[in-house]
Structures are given as structure tokens and as C-alpha cells.
Design a protein around this nucleic acid. Structure first.
Lengths: 127, 127
DNA sequence: CCAACCTTGACACGATCGTGTTAAGCTTTG
DNA sequence: CAAAGCTTAACACGATCGTGTCAAGGTTGG
């Protein structure tokens, strides 16, 4: 037998066997199986599982977040759409028809500052 | 008034006013405010909101996913950690017999991570 | 001034996530 | 063979998400 069974893997990784199955169902791991269907966890998988634990704790994020990040990493369309959305910023419309948006400049100013300024509470000094 | 109020924005974007506030609380938009605190939605924000709707529908993902993607996009450490995790290969010990599967090129993988001490390993003492 | 609108806060509620537990049925092994 | 271990499926349950709604109070505008 070349690898750990699910209960052994659980002990060395800190996950419960239930969670190991759950993590697999979430698509985050895919341990190989014996001909009869028993999962076998190699050292690489074990390491990945420990790393995953550290990841979730360090960044305080959820399994579903990592699952989505995986999707994000492997689906170029999804990534492109998201990137586009994040870049999209509230700007004045190219062809402003009627003069409805008179004081837009100020809004834009506020928006841009709010957007990529790290948590700052003081009033920014305009150059 | 140079922009739409929350109810007007709701009508043109398809979101409910409640959801517009929720989306803001999730950090996905940050509409500017009047001096008295009323949100004002410019055309850019409205467009973003419609795009967001399309995004969620097209890729069948959740607001929290997009929120996490934003974090992922703006936190290099998080991105690096996730990228490293996805690159980590499980590589089951294929050619190894029952003897020494514990010793193989694991160290290379371990080097990639800032190490913590994983939960101590104890041999499964049959209780 | 008063109706209409905005704001925050809270309660509610179904859906999903994360997790444990248990059941029924194979498999491995002493 | 029987105990122990694995597998899937299912029930349960608290926590969080997504969403509506309602309340209490400030703002706006005719």
C-alpha cells in the first residue's frame, strides 16, 4: 500500500475524514483511488492539505473562496470578465447628451480616491 | 441633483434598493454621497451594476465570490499564496513500492511554503 | 408644513456552507 | 470468519449569504 488511507491522512493533516471528502467534493483535491475505490493520500496531497489549512487560517477565507479562486485561475473567460469589471470605473459618459451631469467632476474625484486608497480616514490633500 | 438616487438606480439596474446597499456593504461599489449622506449613482456606477448582474448570471457565481475575487486582485500576498497552492502538485508516488514512499522529492514542495508546524503526528495507537 | 424619499438598524427566512454523525454495504486483514 | 476500515448517502445543525420588510429618524421639495 503506497499511501495513507483517509483516516490516516486525517490524523496527519488535522482535517477530519468527513472534511477530506468534502474538500474533494469541492474540487480542491482529487486523491487517486485503489481499484476498489479507496482513496490514497500521497505525501504531496498531505502537504497540500496542510498548506490549505494554513491558507484558510492566514487569510481568514473559506473553502468556497478557494474553490472559486481555482475556477478563476482555470477559466480565462471568467478571469477576463472579472478583470474587466474591476477595471470598469464610474466615469463621466463619453457623450453626455443633456447637461444633467454638471458636477460630475467632483464625483469622479471622490470615486477614484475612494477606490484605490487603502483604509484612510483623513481628507486627502489634492495636489 | 446630478445623479440617481438609490430607488431610481434600483429601477434602472434591476437590483433592489436593499441589494444596492448590500452590495455596497460587501465592498463591491462605493457610490459617492451628498453632504447629507444620500447615495448618488452616476452612469458609471449604474453600468457597473448592470455588468455585475450579467457577470453573476453568466458564470453562476455569488456576490461573495466576486468580493473575494476583488480581495484576490488587490492583495498580492493572498494571490501569491493561492497561486502557490494551485501549483503544488499532488504527484502520487507511482513507481514506489511499499517500502519507502515517505522519502521522495517532498522537500522541494515544502520549501515553497512558509512553514508552520503542522499538528503533531502521533502514530495511530489503537485505543 | 407635510408627503415623499433617504439612512441605518433590526427581524425574518430560505438557501448554502462547513461539519458531525449514523446507516447500509463492500473490502481488507488478523 | 469477524473485526476494523473504507465508501456513499442522508439527516442534523449552527453560521453565513442573499433578500424582503419594517421601524425610527433626518432631508427634500412643492
Amino acid at each position: 500500500m503506497e499511501g495513507l488511507t483517509i483516516n490516516e491522512a486525517a490524523e496527519t493533516t488535522g482535517w477530519s475524514p468527513r472534511m477530506l471528502r468534502y474538500i474533494e467534493s469541492a474540487g480542491l483535491i482529487e486523491p487517486p483511488r485503489t481499484p476498489k475505490g479507496y482513496r490514497i493520500f500521497g505525501p504531496g496531497e498531505l502537504q497540500r492539505l496542510r498548506t490549505l489549512r494554513e491558507l484558510l487560517a492566514r487569510f481568514d477565507c473559506a473553502l468556497s473562496d478557494v474553490a472559486f479562486a481555482k475556477r478563476h485561475a482555470s477559466d480565462p473567460e471568467l478571469r477576463a470578465a472579472l478583470d474587466r469589471w474591476f477595471e470598469e470605473r464610474p466615469e463621466p459618459p463619453e457623450g453626455v447628451e443633456s447637461g444633467d451631469w454638471l458636477s460630475w467632476e467632483q464625483q469622479k474625484h471622490q470615486r477614484l480616491l475612494a477606490m484605490d486608497t487603502p483604509p484612510r480616514l483623513t481628507e486627502p490633500t489634492p495636489a
